Each structure stands twice: as structure tokens, then as C-alpha cells.
Amino acid sequence: MSKVSVLVVDDASFIRDLVKNCLRNYFPGIRIEDAVNGRKAQALLTREPFDLVLCDWEMPEMSGLELLTWCREQDRLKALPFIMVTSRGDKENVIQAIQAGVSDFVSKPFTNEQLLTKVKKAFTKAGLLNAVMASAPVRTSTGLANDSLSALTGGKAQVVTPSAPSRPTAAAAPVARPASQTPTGRGQGQLRLPTGIQPCVIKALSLKEALLVVRRGDELPQILASAVLDLEQGERAEVARLNGYLHAIVAYEPKPDSDWLQLTFRFVDQDAEKMNYLSRLIAHGTAQKQFVPGA
């Protein structure tokens, strides 16, 4: 019997490696190919068969939605399980993908358990789970995260609400906000981690990374953890969802029990539209003296 094959599509190599490593660790016998955008994935799907596609939404040349639409127009790919792995959690985006024929969603950032739950669900529907599980290691049951499709269409992650620091700090210090309010002003954003959503303040910003300040919670963020930084700017309330990972974490105050953490969030997106947005945000922030460019 031929190996079960999966195609991973994402313009960020860090995300592709994250997905591939997760699948290979759990399904040692699986075959995995990857593509940097929808156009490359389209060429692979034309040449060879796959049992599952895990695809990002925002990519250069051809987006995940465009690839999904093309797949559903091909007779042999109409029933191909297609899971969107995306930071686009808006209800209108979800509805758009469902209408295009998406099989399921995994919301960025994700845990291994969330990803595996969706992949096993897809394999079960396709009648392939027994084949891929035959070589999988025995694992004890764990409390898996909430269903990401449910979260995308109405569920809300818990928000860690910052309060004023113990002593006066610079102008970039976080500002207290009610739990129901997401910080969206200039110089502020929202960091989505696998463990939840955390308001943050952008201390510095460049095309490569952002320097963020967050309130310390019960669970410390982990270095190399994948995350999504949501930034909103301007009267039109444009939102950029920037994929990346935590490159460094230090105490914001010079003491071991610092109430605030400084995170270096490194971007992994290659999407030109996101980079253009980021350039405009940096230029606008420079004029407003809300961001310190050149992080």
C-alpha cells in the first residue's frame, strides 16, 4: 500500500517546518511535500496525488483561497480534504472559505494537539486513519484544545488584561484596559499565542521584527513559540495579521519578579501586501512618534 501523502502550503518556512515536524513525529510513515505558495502547490497537485492539503490563506502569487477554489473546480480534487491553516479568524473570511469548499480550519497560532486533532478528523472522514495510525507511537490521552472552527466562528480566547505597572515607566509602557476591549490604538496590538490572546504595546518596529511589551501572566511565553501579531492602524482600521515566532524574552524591569516582559517577535511572512502594510505602519508611526523604527 502506498504511503498516505500530505501537501503543506505556506510562504513562511518556519510554519512549514512546524507543521511537517508535528506530522512526522506523530505519523512516522507519512509522506510530506511542501510548497511556498498556491502556484507551486497547484503544480504539485497537477503532477501527483495527495490525500490531504494543509494550506495558508495569505501567500504571494496565489492565495490559499484561490488554490482551494481551483481544487474544487477539478474533478479529481473536488473531494480532496483541504484544511486552511490561517490567522484569518474573521467571520466573513470563514464564511468565504466554507462557500469555496474548505474541509476545516486550524487557527494560527496552533498547538500540536490542535493540528493533530484536525488532521486525524480529516483522515477519519477519508477512511485513512487506520493506515496512518499503524505506524504512529502510542500516546496517552490529553485534553485537546477547543475546536478551532468553533473558535473562528464565535468562540473567544481568554484575554490577559494589562494593568498599570508598579512604577512610572516610559511613554511606551502598557496602559490598563477593560477585559472586553482589545487594544487597537497606534503603538498597540494583540499577540495571539497558542495559550491565548494577550494585549501588547509595540516598543519598536521594523520590517524584520517587533519589540513588544506584555503583562506577565501565570504562564510565561516560550521562546520559539509560534504566534500571530494583530496590528490595527488608521481611520480605516486596517488590520495586518503577521505570522512569526518569539525570538527572545527578557524582563522589562531590572528585577526577577518583573511584572512586564519584553518580547522580540520575529516575522516569518513573505507576503508583499503585508510587508507594504508594515512599511506604511512604520512610516506613520515614525511621524506620530509612536514607534521607534529599526528594531
Rank of each mutant, 00 (worst) to 15 (best):
I83W: 05
Q114S: 15
A126S: 15
P174K: 06
S148E: 12
I249R: 00
G189V: 08
A43N: 14
L52V: 03
I202G: 02
V250F: 00
L231F: 02
C71P: 08
R88A: 06
Q262M: 07
F110R: 04
S163R: 13
Q114T: 14
V239F: 00
L191F: 05
L211D: 11
I98N: 10
P174S: 03
K78D: 04
A283W: 07
S180L: 06
D34V: 01
E273R: 13
K91V: 10
A172I: 11
P165E: 07
L191Q: 04
G89K: 08
Y245V: 05
Y252W: 00
G155E: 03
A145V: 10
R216K: 15
V106P: 02
E209C: 15
H247D: 13
V213Q: 08
Q290A: 04
V6H: 02
K118T: 15
L224I: 09
F123G: 12
S107D: 03
T195A: 15
F291V: 13
A287H: 12
E66H: 06
G244A: 12
S87Q: 06
L115K: 08
A100Y: 11
V132Y: 04
T153P: 02
T142N: 13
Y277W: 10
L144R: 15
D11H: 11
S2F: 01
W70S: 01
P168K: 01
S5V: 07
L149D: 00
T264W: 07
R186G: 11
L205W: 12
E253M: 07
L67G: 01
N37Y: 11
S163D: 13
M1Q: 07
M84W: 02
V159G: 00
N130W: 00
C22R: 04
R76I: 08
F267G: 01
Q222F: 06
G89W: 11
D218K: 14
I32N: 03
A122L: 05
Q158G: 13
W57M: 06
G196L: 13
M133Y: 02
T264G: 02
L207G: 15
M62W: 11
T184H: 12
F14P: 00
K120F: 01
Q198L: 15
G155C: 09
A251M: 08
F267N: 03
E238A: 13
Y252V: 00
D218C: 04
S5H: 02
F14G: 04
C71Y: 10
L242D: 09
T124R: 14
D17Y: 02
L152Y: 10
L144F: 14
G89Q: 11
E33Y: 09
S163Y: 15
